[in-house]
Structure formats: structure tokens, C-alpha cells
Nucleic acid binder design. Structure first.
Lengths: 329, 329
DNA sequence: CTGAAAGCGCTTACAG
DNA sequence: CTGAAAGCGCTTACAG
């Protein structure tokens, strides 16, 4: 079977395909009667627009979504929200996971360029202070709006949608300070991670307000469970803190496992605090007070800002959006 | 800045864009010297092919991926593997989550048709015996290969990549039969779910071999945590089984939470078995023997089969692929 | 309000 | 081995 195209409808409606095109894409430009006839026919005949042809002349109605990983619930939820919202607004998503590889990320961007995407939402592989891939210049020179998602780096972009990481650290710190713990172990991310450092700084602010900085031990791991598990296990050989604070969900998971392997009963021998929710903690009956981030909102704002930029006449810069988390127990 | 196109390269190479097209897409059709000159120029000038234009005449090199949800780790892992493998083979993925909505699923398929996708991998929203959406006929009439992912329904399709659910149930049953439990609570999926019923049948086979069918209680929930939690909580008010067997990861998570809410200490007051791995159980120190499925393999096979079908001259049917799980403790 | 002409960037037979 | 012609399906100024 062949797909029905504009000219098929045109024949039946006794007009040209130009009018059909207008009736379907710019209805206000066509007389009501003709318009209605055409729309009805299109419906009946099962017309499906050809995006490849459309995208060749006008907007591709396609956006690119690149995230470092999709197995971390933070990102899988974000992707769900982003894709749903984009679809609702008439945009489709070409999707890539970079798996923390700069090369894959780079290739993904090239592919997106080849699809004439209208815009890109990207959570880059690293927010190391020195990560500034060249392709952002290319995107800019082609006037393709770019929303940086969650991870902020120094590159040309339209706007960023981030968490308020200092605030998250500070709020969690305040919560922790409600009790009077003796020794606090904080497991942070990389020394060069802005997110990790912001969270850590927020935490320190809260601690110093109560003069508790001396009770702090800090481990610099990264945002994966494995390294956290290993470093916490090493630490526990020397010292037993009263609580462990993980600065993201993966870190906290790693710390939990280290304690399990060390023979601790969770919640009894060791208490945990976390930035980012540990989604399954309730299923295992372990209570982990945490900073919960509104991922719905993050995803919604990313898409909204991107589409604003796409549909604006001037492709200038938009303001960043900073989303605050809140304590959840 | 404008994108460089074939004709730009052509001018510099003193050939027409036809030759450039061939040098890049069908290199064997062009004299070695010309070919090399063109390829070098394309590289230097930063040529990026326009997929919209390519897709208008020839293959779009785009496939559609639709899954019911991306927050279940089973699917997020599968999507990761599918997208990665597709990219490696030169195909890009338009991605949709149907969120268990038949309407969204349907719209997603229409969108894919409008992109002239070369093929579709779809995990449908339901494997209820009666779910057989019309759009599969449309896909077939347009000769678009379709791989059914994980959920098998009675509709036209090229092939399916499934789990061996009877085998999974049977293997888990054998494992459970190693011990001599008094009362076994099995939490299954919907009465109309083929996957759930197959797993349940496998389980029953193993139980009846040991004449233990009388020790069995069965709850029919669905593949979400909420209902399982509720039904198990209700059950526990009347009776305390020796073990609980969850027939997918979400069900097991729900059962865990019900026990927690009932005041049980996991692993001590209640032991669990599961089909599907509970990824974070090791972090919480709860051991849950389970049937682990090789999602890498599932995803890999889906993509491989789809691309075989796409690139075959005859778009016939391919054989289904059934992937077996194995016990993990 | 509608249409004729031209073009988006690439590819596909068909010649030579 | 290379090119001239035509076309993929749609849209965009420009006329009328």
C-alpha cells in the first residue's frame, strides 16, 4: 500500500496540493469551506504527513535529547518527562545516551545536526570545570537552541535548567544538625565536580553555623556507586562515623552496600542521609532522609524553555532556571 | 553559518554533486582517486549529511523504539542496549514511552510512519490476550518491519524477542523446592497476562513435581508495585506464609514494602524469591534469589533481528528469539 | 483565497 | 567512471 500524500487529497478535493498543505499546516490561510472539506478528506484517507519532506523545507519538529545514562532513575525519570512534554507540544525526540563517553556525545550531536533538529536538550557527560566540548560552538553557529540539563559547563548555550545544589546541601545540613551527631562522614563526588562542590559547600554552611565543622570527614568519590562503596569500606576499617551523608543517589547506594558488607544493620548500626531520593528505600524499610528534587518540574522546564527558544524570532539567550529540592523523610 | 552540502564539495572537487553523493554513500562506484579527494574534502569542510533529504528518497536510517515505561529498570536497561546497538549499526532512534496508554502508543506509531522509519521495536502496553491494536496492519501494509519486544500479542509482526517465561517460572520453582517451606505465597500478574501465566505455569510444574501444590496461595495483582503491596498487605492480615514469590520486579518490590509495613524484618521474618532481579537489594543487604534475565542479550537480539529484516530483500518473517534466564542468588 | 513556479538536499535510473 | 534529468513530498514567496 502507498502512503497517501498531499496530491492525493488535492485530486479528490479539486484543489492543488498547495492548498491542501495550507489547509493542514496553516488552516487560517484557507477559506473555511475548502479547509473543512480538505481536513475531512485527510482524515478519511488516513493522511500521515511526511516529516522528511516537511523537515527539508521547514522546521523538523524534532529535538535531540542526550543524557549520560538512563539507568540512573534521576535521568530515566527526566527522560520520561522530557519526551512526554515534547510530544504533547508536537515535537519528537531523537534519543541518545552518551554512557559517559565524550566521543559518543560528540557523534550524537553530529547526528542531530544531520536531522536538522530544532533544538537540543543535553545532560553532558561531565561537569568537570574543564569540560567544554567544541560542538557547542557548532550548534551556536547553526542557531540551534541548546538547553543544558542538570549539569552546568562553560560553553555557549541558550539556557540551563539546574538544581540549586548549594541550597540542597544547606537544607540537608540543617536537617542533620537537628540531631547532635558525633562523627559525620560525607561522601562527595569528584573534587572537580561543580554539582558535588556546590552541595558540599551548602552542607558546610549549615555545619559551620552550628560550629560542627570539626566533626566532619569528607571522602571524594564520584557519582557512581562502585567507587563510593570501595572508599566507604576502606574508611570503615579505620573509623565508625555516627552517620553517613551521600551527595547523590548512587553514592548513597554505594555507602549502604559498604555498611552491609561491614556487617552493619542499616538504620540500627548506621544512619544515612542523602541528596537525591533512594527510590527503593521504602521497599526495604530503611528510612533515609533526603533532598528530593522535583524531576517533573526539571523536565517540564527544560522542554518549555527549549520550545520558547525554538519558537522565538530572536534566538537570544534565556534565563537559567534553578529548581530547589526539599527535605523528604 | 550555513551547513556545507554536497554541491559545495562538488565545486571544490570539480565534479558534480552526483559524484560526491556516490563517493560518500556508494564509494565503490567512484574512481579511487576522485573518491579519496572527495572524502578528504568532506572531512575538511565538516560535511554533515542531511538526513531529511536522504530519508526523502532512500532509507531514513531511523528506527522507532516504543516502550510502556522507562522507569522500570528492565525497560531502561533494554532501551540503553537497544539505542547503543542501533547507533553502532548506523541507525538512530526515535524514542517514545507509551506510559501504558493505548492512545499514546497509537500516536507514536503514526509519528513513526511520518518519519519513514525503517523499522520499529515495540514493547506494547499490554500483553492481555485481547490486545491487538489495528496499527500493526498498517505497519505491515507499508512493509515496515516490527519486532515485538518482551510482550507477545497476536498481531502481524516480523518477529518477537521474548523471555522464556515458563522456563523462568520452572527454574525459580526448582530453586524454591530445594527447601521445604510450609506455605508459599505467589504474587502473580494479571489473570490475562501471558507473561504472568507462563511464569506461574512454570512455577506450578516445579511444585507439582514435588507434590507441593497444596502449599500454594496465589494472588493475582499486576506488574506494578502498588497493587501488589496492597494485596499482599491484605493477605498478611489473615495468614503468614513462609516465603513470598514475586513474578516480576515491581511485584516483588510491592511485596517487600507490604512486609515492612507489617513490621517484618526482611530476610529474618520473611524470605523472598523473585523473577527479575531487584537491583538495589544488595545495597540494602537483603538477599533475594531470583531469575535474572540477560537484558544485554534481549536488546542486542531485538536490534539485530530488526536490522536483518530491514536490510533483507524479502521482508518476510524471522524466527522469534527466546531468551532464558538463570538463577542468581 | 488559490495556484504556478521554484526549491529544500539528496539519490536513482538512464546515457555516454 | 561521471553526469544530465527527473523526482522524493512538501513549502515558500510571488502573482493574480
Amino acid at each position: 500500500m502507498k502512503k497517501v500524500k498531499l496530491s492525493d487529497i488535492a485530486k479528490r478535493a479539486n484543489v492543488t496540493s498547495i492548498t491542501v498543505s495550507r489547509a493542514l499546516s496553516n488552516p487560517e490561510k484557507v477559506k473555511q469551506k475548502t479547509r473543512e472539506k480538505i481536513q475531512k478528506l485527510a482524515q478519511e484517507m488516513g493522511y500521515i504527513p511526511n516529516m522528511m519532506a516537511k523537515g527539508l523545507k521547514s522546521s523538523s519538529k524534532t529535538i535531540g535529547v542526550i543524557v549520560p545514562t538512563i539507568t540512573n532513575p534521576f535521568f530515566s525519570n527526566a527522560v520520561r518527562v522530557i519526551v512526554n512534554n515534547a510530544n504533547k507540544r508536537g515535537y519528537n525526540c531523537l534519543f541518545f545516551t552518551s554512557d559517559e563517553s565524550a566521543e559518543i556525545e560528540q557523534n550524537a550531536v553530529n547526528t542531530l545536526l544531520s536531522y536538522n533538529v530544532d533544538g537540543v536538550i543535553i545532560g553532558v557527560i561531565s561537569e568537570d570545570e574543564n569540560y567544554a566540548p567544541e560542538y557547542f560552538n557548532k550548534l551556536k553557529s547553526f542557531h540551534i537552541p541548546v538547553v543544558l540539563f542538570d549539569r552546568n559547563i562553560d560553553v555557549p548555550h541558550t539556557c540551563g535548567v539546574y538544581l540549586d545544589n548549594v541550597d540542597s546541601g544547606y537544607k540537608l545540613g540543617k536537617e542533620i544538625m537537628c540531631d547532635d551527631y558525633d562523627d559525620i562522614l560525607v561522601v562527595s563526588g569528584s573534587l572537580y565536580s561543580r554539582v558535588a562542590n556546590a552541595r558540599l559547600n551548602g552542607l558546610k554552611m549549615a555545619f559551620s553555623e552550628k560550629d560542627k565543622m570539626s566533626k566532619l570527614d569528607i571522602i571524594y568519590a564520584d557519582f557512581n556507586a562502585e567507587l563510593s562503596k570501595k572508599l566507604v569500606a576502606d574508611f570503615l576499617k579505620k573509623k565508625k562515623p555516627s552517620i553517613i551523608v551521600g551527595l547523590n543517589n548512587q553514592i548513597t547506594l554505594g555507602a549502604l552496600e559498604a555498611c552491609v558488607l561491614n556487617g552493619y544493620v542499616l538504620s540500627v548500626d548506621m544512619k544515612f542521609y542523602s541528596i537525591d531520593e533512594i527510590q527503593t528505600s521504602k521497599n526495604f524499610g530503611v528510612s533515609i532522609p533526603c533532598i528530593k528534587h522535583d524531576i517533573e518540574e526539571l523536565g517540564y522546564q527544560s522542554v518549555t524553555q527549549l520550545i520558547r527558544a525554538i519558537e522565538a524570532d530572536e534566538c537570544g539567550e534565556l534565563s537559567d532556571i534553578i529548581i530547589r529540592g526539599s527535605i523528604a523523610k
